[in-house]
Design a protein around this nucleic acid. Structure first.
Lengths: 333, 333
DNA sequence: TTGTACGCGTTATCAG
DNA sequence: CTGATAACGCGTACAA
């Protein structure tokens, strides 16, 4: 079955391509009623559907937003994607999602691919390894929004969690419950990723504010597959932490694994709080106290920023949009 | 910054467009070395990137596969998507993922959108509400593969779990452990979705084979938000089940919620098995016995089928490719 | 070995 | 009110 084009419709309706095009774009201002009907009928009979690719070429707009997530394995990523999708869909935009797997190389490749595909804008969870590429995008005045992370000296708006606050909420909660020897484990060691840095920074700061000691042995940044060993090192020493903050959902899983394997009781032997409100937090034994990110709002904000920019609304490109975390108090601390 | 086109490159390198095109497509057979260098340099200096949209229009191929999932909330969906992405990426294909939210209307809209976007093929988790549309695709000989579900009388290959076997594994395991009053809860009531039907069918069949009674009160198909009530009805009667099979991950979450709220002990008061191996199965208290789907293999198969079809390899369109589930025995039964 | 000319499907412009 | 024509950016016979 050959594709039916606008030319076929025009032929069948005995009008010219342009007239059909007018019809399709609802410019009936001066169109004869019977012409309209003939076209309508021809389209119907032939089952004609406009070719978006051809239209995009002409219009220089694909109504598509590219989204590059650093790591799709985080629940945060999928939730944000859903929010972006919802919003874009509402405004007639499609999204193409790519997963950079935390590799700057891959990220760069995807950026190029998406540009070549002429997406109208880009939402990126930056891997921070492609500053030059980001700068090129800025120079070209290409619509880009960062989410989850920011990149210093790059004039691209960022949608971020108030990460220091997230750590602070946790530490303060630990402190209120009487825990004094508090540790933190985060991931994303290889690249200087903002959330990790800010969470550790906020962690230390909050310890000080709560008059608690900062013990460097209790502060670790590890790749996921090193976490079991790291936990062992941390928890099997004489003086070990009695409370542990998981820097994200993947770390939390590793902690729960360790705790299970070593029959450690939560929260009597070890209190636990996780950043990111995982789906099973409420049904786990004990239920898990978490710091929730407003994922939906954040995704929405990123999408709004991009679509606004496409309409040439003025956006402050230096701006960082911070969102506040909330502590969901359950039984694990 | 204006977009730089092949014409700009040609001008700069003092050659014609076609020569540049040759270069881009690596047809150097008869190209002068210095011409090559000039072009190379011009591309470099201008930062030229080919416009995929224009290329697609000419080549009538977008190197893009559309994926429509019925419900992105299932862990199964995301895992399958990752597998598809991996495979497609390897072969230079991109994917566009759409979430139909279990609504046939939405699914239909997405099918039309993806076709208009000229995707080269479609992988669909069918909602079963668009048989006519599917038939149109078949008639047009358009490359489509179904996954997770099948649709009767539609000649489209399907990649599916051996669902009856999944139920059988669970029931037999329950039986071996001495449970006799076994129930099942599934979702997707509104549409006649294959997995649910097959799982219930397999469930009943296995009960009979294990010489256990089939109690209709213990077999429920409910929308997610009705499950709490359903569990109440089922578990608060005199003679209630002592073992429960969760038809998928969402049902499992609901069961765990109920169990928590009513302080029911697993497995002494109620044994539980879930179809779909959720991430926290191994760290839950107790660890959860699950029936795992080979999600990666299934996604891979779907992707392979589509790409094969694009290369006009013969594929039996009547074929249903069944994948075997495996029981992961843990503590919840 | 390189250039010319045209087609892909759509839309904008402008003449009629 | 409608139609011819020229783009959009790329690829490819075919000619030179």
């Amino acid at each position: 079955m050959r594709k039916v084009t606008i030319t076929d419709v025009a032929k069948k309706a005995n009008v010219s391509k342009s007239t059909v095009s007018q019809y399709l774009n609802k410019r009936f201002d001066y169109m004869a009623e019977k012409t309209k009907e003939r076209i309508e009928q021809a389209i119907e009979e032939l089952g004609y559907k406009p070719n978006i690719v051809a239209r995009s070429l002409k219009q220089k707009s694909t109504s598509t937003i590219g989204v590059i997530v650093a790591n799709i394995l985080h629940a945060f990523s999928t939730q944000v994607i859903r929010a972006i999708e919802d919003y874009c869909h509402e405004y007639g935009f499609h999204i193409i999602v790519c997963n950079a797997d935390d590799e700057p190389e891959k990220e760069k490749k995807y950026i190029e691919m998406l540009l070549a595909k002429q997406v109208d804008g880009l939402i990126i969870f930056p891997t921070v390894g492609n500053v030059d590429t980001y700068q090129d995008l800025v120079k070209a005045n290409y619509p880009v929004v960062f989410i989850d992370r920011m990149v210093h000296d790059v004039k691209i708006p960022s949608v971020m969690l108030n990460n220091e606050k997230a750590s602070d909420l946790a530490v303060t909660h630990f402190a209120e419950k009487g825990y004094k020897k508090i540790g933190i484990i985060t991931t994303s060691v290889s690249h200087n990723v903002t959330p990790r840095i800010e969470r550790v920074k906020g962690f230390k700061k909050s310890l000080v504010e709560n008059n608690l000691p900062v013990i460097n042995d209790f502060i670790k940044s590890l790749e996921v597959d090193e976490i079991q060993q790291g936990l062992k090192d941390m928890l099997q020493q004489e003086n070990c932490p009695d409370a542990l903050l998981a820097g994200n959902d993947l770390v939390l899983m590793e902690i729960l694994k360790y705790v299970k394997d070593h029959s450690i009781n939560i929260p009597t032997e070890l209190a636990v709080i996780g950043i990111d409100d995982v789906e099973f937090a409420g049904v786990y034994y004990p239920t898990l106290t978490t710091i929730a990110q407003p994922t939906f709002e954040m995704g929405l904000k990123a999408a709004t920023l991009i679509l606004d920019k496409l309409q040439n609304k003025e956006i402050d490109s230096e701006e960082i949009y911070r969102f506040e975390p909330t502590l969901i108090s359950r039984e694990s601390c």
